[in-house]
Nucleic acid binder design. Structure first.
Length: 453
DNA sequence: AAAAAAT
């Protein structure tokens, strides 16, 4: 019960009105430490309640300690996308109905002057995406010198290369006497890196569920496809035949998202799309339509991969497979939230097989193979080579290679080589036991030095 | 190799 934790009474009242009485596992773990002022570094699965795990202690401490006279921003929450910033802002506002701290939303695509005047009113909490915040810092419209809290939500993302420059500027503008919290479903405590370690003071490392143990609530399937046209047909079939309340379809490129949404629209109503090149008005409108259920199908880039909490989202389709295991985890985590079940289906073309295998290896799971009658791929997965002769058990139909090819023919092949590390010949997937123990973890892929080119 | 985040 939240009442057993020393949250501010006004917050408890708020929770009661929102009909939230039990803390989730991650909330129970984080709250006492965060309330005691500890820095925390949290790994907990998607949909497990990380947002309140930092908002509640943050709000409590702001409420319990009076603001210093004309102090600037007291708490800063950083997020990687505008949609996510907006979502957290909304949750924050749910509580400002009951409690004082005012929060301001600072992200791109909105009018700068309006934000500047908002910041002049000194909201105690600023919720922001990095780019625009840096703008405000440079123009002196935002002051973080008396910051008491810093939260990096989706911390691994905030600390990866794409944000490095902005984060540098932000961090060096922040008060060093502050409490810092980092959270993500894919945070690796060992590997958080120099920047993160510099930001944290003796952090408590909290892992409710390690990455490989997350989500038994999400059924994960894969369907083989021969080519994009085949994927298109599979997608339309799935959207017509699966039962779902809301679905999200991920593609890897904006242009592909645009193409797909146009294509699917020809077969179905209720399709929306989201990617980072759209106007902020369109993005806002789309999210509203999706949340209200008026557009139950959202086709998106990875802008929607992390954090978005949309009621009733019970189907995730990876039209393109995520580029790495972490992003895969976040994508499928749009479903199966807060104890609900979900289904995630990945469409796999031949070139994606190795990626699929590496995701499965990292997450120590196997996607369930699935076939759709009438849309079965000729591709059956990588050929088992080794043992000279025949490819075992797979009937070869659409194989471009000549049948009589001897082994040594490979050497001379002028066909474009697969790019990638390691031996060009894929190892047969011999692992059947996924948890084969101690040997597993320490196996490191060869480290790559930044190769001079 | 691409997405996001600034204008």
């Amino acid at each position: 019960m939240f009442t057993e934790i020393s949250l501010n009474p006004r917050l408890l009242l708020g929770l009661e009105k929102l009909a939230i009485s039990e803390p989730t596992e991650v909330q129970s773990a984080v709250l006492p430490l965060a309330l005691a002022g500890k820095d925390v570094q949290v790994c907990a699965e998607t949909g497990s309640g990380k947002t309140l795990a930092y908002l509640l202690p943050l709000l409590t401490r702001l409420l319990d300690n009076e603001a210093r006279p004309n102090s600037g921003t007291r708490a800063l929450i950083l997020l990687p996308t505008r949609e996510l910033a907006n979502q957290v802002h909304k949750v924050c506002k749910l509580f400002s109905e009951f409690v004082r701290p005012d929060s301001g939303l600072i992200c791109g695509g909105e009018e700068f002057r309006y934000q500047a005047s908002l910041l002049r009113k000194n909201p105690e909490i600023v919720i922001a995406t990095p780019g625009r915040l840096v703008d405000h810092l440079k123009r002196g419209t935002c002051d973080l010198k008396s910051l008491e809290f810093l939260v990096l939500d989706e911390a691994d993302r905030m600390l990866d290369m794409g944000f490095a420059e902005d984060m540098d500027i932000i961090i060096s503008a922040c008060n060093t006497e502050r409490q810092t919290m980092m959270l993500s479903a894919t945070l690796r405590h060992e590997g958080v890196g120099r920047v993160a370690r510099k930001m944290l003071k003796e952090p408590a490392e909290i892992t409710t569920r390690a990455i490989e143990e997350q989500h038994d609530l999400i059924v994960q399937q894969r369907i083989l496809a021969d080519d994009p046209a085949h994927k298109d047909r599979l997608l339309v079939w799935l959207l017509a035949n699966e039962t779902f309340e809301k679905a999200i379809v991920f593609a890897n490129k904006r242009s592909e998202v645009e193409r797909l949404s146009e294509f699917v629209r020809r077969h179905r109503e209720g399709v929306a799309m989201l990617h980072g090149e759209m106007s902020q008005d369109d993005r806002r409108y789309v999210m509203q339509m999706v949340r209200e259920g008026r557009r139950p199908i959202l086709i998106a880039t990875d802008v929607a991969a992390r954090g978005l909490d949309v009621e009733g989202m019970d189907l995730v389709i990876n039209y393109d497979l995520a580029r790495k295991a972490d992003e895969y985890v976040h994508r499928i985590g749009r479903t199966g939230r807060a104890g609900k079940a979900g289904l995630a289906i990945s469409l796999i073309m031949p070139y994606e097989w190795n990626l699929k295998a590496s995701i499965e290896r990292t997450l120590q799971m196997m996607m369930q193979p699935r076939q759709i009658d009438g849309l079965v791929a000729a591709y059956k997965g990588p050929k088992k080579l080794k043992s000279s002769g025949k490819a075992a058990g797979t009937k070869k139909k659409k194989d471009s290679k000549k049948d009589g090819a001897k082994k040594d023919a490979r050497k001379k092949s002028s066909e474009p080589r697969r790019v990638g590390k390691g031996p060009a010949t894929p190892k047969p997937a011999k692992r059947t036991n996924l948890m084969d123990g101690a040997g597993f973890a320490p196996v490191r892929r060869q480290k790559r030095e930044p190769d001079a080119e």
